[in-house]
Amino acid sequence: MRLLILTKHLDCLGQNDAAICNGFRRFGCEVIFGEINAIAADDYRYFTRGVLVQGNGEPYHPGSAALGNRGAYFLDECQLIWVLDMPQDSMARDVWQMLWLASQHTAFVNSIEGMMFLDTKHALGYVLPKENRAFSYISNDFSLLWKRYQQSPDQWWVAKPPNAFCGQNVFLLPPNGPNVRTILQCLTGNTVAQDEFDTAGQFGYGPAGFKAEYAVLQQFIPEVAQGEKRVIVACGKAVAWHGRRNPPDDHRSNITQGGKPISVDLHSGEIELAELIGRKLMTHGINFVGIDMAYPYILELNIANPAGLYDAKFTSGIDHSDQVAELIIAHFEKHCHPGLGRGPHHCQ
């Protein structure tokens, strides 16, 4: 089997890039690293700049450069493609369109449709049972969110963009908070101020263009204070997990925002919930996901390059990349490419 891993930087591999490459290589698979922002077409046949990884080289580590034969590699010459990073905003629409077209002929670990429509906070209400998600309002109308906040004077809230990651612009809103109005205005595009300058109207139309932005107003979950857990689910099976402890001066536990990975156990209820979600996502072509959990609540689904394998190894000392590779290979040999090999140890 030839696996193409689409990533952003060939000279600085991410945590998942390195771990997944190592796991698949140990099963005898051929691995190519390709640049997601370099997707192109030759008479509507899609290719990218990439590196064919040396067969007997040393294992990769996060931050390594991809070593091997650099050149152009066609997507339809690979049996499996794994998108492990998001394209740049300025070209995202074109990249997603070409990848979707490529996916009509080549298997993707995570479907393009799933990455586009389920890797967002909008999707929580669809994927999760009601009892496992926090009550939320979503709007680009500041006045609606402000009204909802005022209607629950004793409630703590969290406000954030629906399509941001790594803890960006996540605010904890206390009851009667002096900055809440400002924060909600900011998250929805400051259309109140834009009205004054642009005569833009309620939603920010005017000479400067449309300014309104969506925001999520979500009830704060007290269970978060006990710590969050990141659970990696591959083909519906929970394979790796770690806890995250937020720094003393921040309510966010994201590793990128100063949170610390810690070793934790999962009880049977947490495993059952994670695998239930994983199986539902598989019906939409999502076979690898990172689930943020403060049981019994799910806080977020991370589909595009969910970190967790490296941190789980760091905290537990156990490398789960082989288990991930085995599950993915077996799934696609069974469901998409039965002729590729004689089992997960015989990739061709």
Rank of each mutant, 00 (worst) to 15 (best):
V53K: 04
F47T: 00
N69Y: 12
S64Q: 05
V53C: 13
P59G: 08
V51M: 02
E58S: 14
R45H: 07
L67D: 03
Y46T: 01
T48E: 10
F74T: 04
G55H: 06
P62E: 12
Q54P: 00
N56Y: 06
G57D: 04
F74Y: 15
F47Y: 15
G63A: 10
L75A: 07
V51G: 01
P62I: 13
D76S: 15
F74C: 04
Y60F: 15
V51L: 01
A72K: 14
R70F: 05
Y73A: 03
Y60W: 04
A72N: 14
H61L: 11
G55E: 13
V51R: 02
D76Y: 09
L67T: 13
Y60P: 05
A72P: 00
Y46G: 05
R45L: 00
V51F: 00
G68T: 03
H61Q: 12
Y60N: 05
V51S: 01
G50A: 10
G63S: 06
G63K: 05
A65W: 06
G68L: 06
Y60E: 06
D76M: 06
L75V: 09
V53G: 04
N56Q: 10
S64A: 15
G57H: 03
G50K: 05
G57S: 13
L52A: 08
N56P: 00
V53R: 07
A65G: 15
Y46N: 02
A65P: 08
Y73P: 01
F47M: 07
L75T: 08
G71T: 01
A66K: 07
S64N: 15
T48M: 09
E58I: 04
F47P: 00
R70C: 09
S64T: 11
H61G: 02
E58Q: 12
N56E: 13
Y46R: 02
G57F: 02
V51D: 01
R45I: 07
N69P: 00
G71H: 01
G57C: 04
A65C: 09
F74V: 04
F47S: 06
A72L: 14
G57N: 02
G55R: 14
A72S: 13
R49G: 06
R45C: 09
V51C: 09
S64V: 07
G71A: 03
D76A: 12
T48V: 11
S64W: 09
G55T: 10
G50S: 06
A65Y: 03
N56L: 03
G57P: 04
P62H: 12
R45A: 05
Y46W: 11
L75G: 09
N56H: 13
Q54I: 08
N69C: 08
F47A: 09
G55I: 00
F47H: 14
V51K: 01
Y60D: 07
P59I: 05
G57A: 12
G63C: 09
G63I: 07
P59A: 12
N69I: 12
G55Q: 13
A72C: 12
P59N: 11
A66M: 09
L52P: 00
A66V: 09
N69T: 13
A72G: 00
V51P: 01
L75S: 09
L75F: 15
N69H: 14
P62W: 11
A72F: 12
